[in-house]
Amino acid sequence: MGMTSAVSEAQDKAIWHRAYRRAERQRLQSQPFSDPHSFREFSDPWGMDKDGKQYCEKMPARWMRK
Results as ranks from 00 to 15, higher is better:
R40M: 07
R25T: 09
I15S: 12
Q11G: 10
F33E: 00
D49C: 12
A6W: 08
R65W: 06
D44Y: 03
W63H: 12
R22K: 14
R18I: 01
R62C: 09
F39I: 12
M48V: 09
E41C: 02
S5N: 15
F42C: 04
D49P: 06
W46T: 03
S8L: 10
A61E: 15
P45W: 03
D51E: 04
H37T: 05
K50E: 05
P36K: 06
K13A: 10
M3L: 14
P36V: 03
D49N: 11
W46A: 05
H37F: 07
L28N: 01
A61Q: 14
T4A: 15
S38E: 02
G52E: 02
D35M: 02
Q11D: 15
C56R: 14
S43M: 08
M1T: 13
D35R: 06
W46Y: 13
R21S: 05
M64K: 15
C56K: 15
K66S: 10
Q31G: 00
M48I: 07
G47Q: 10
R40S: 11
S30C: 01
P45K: 01
S43V: 07
W16R: 09
Y55M: 11
L28G: 01
Q26W: 05
W16M: 02
S43K: 12
Q31R: 07
W63Y: 12
E24D: 00
Y20L: 08
R21V: 07
D51Q: 09
M3C: 14
E41F: 01
D44A: 06
E41R: 07
S34Y: 01
M48D: 13
A19I: 00
W16G: 03
E57Y: 07
I15E: 14
A6C: 14
Y20W: 07
R25W: 04
Y55C: 10
P32M: 03
R18K: 13
S5P: 08
K13V: 13
M3F: 09
P36R: 05
A14I: 09
K58F: 12
R27P: 03
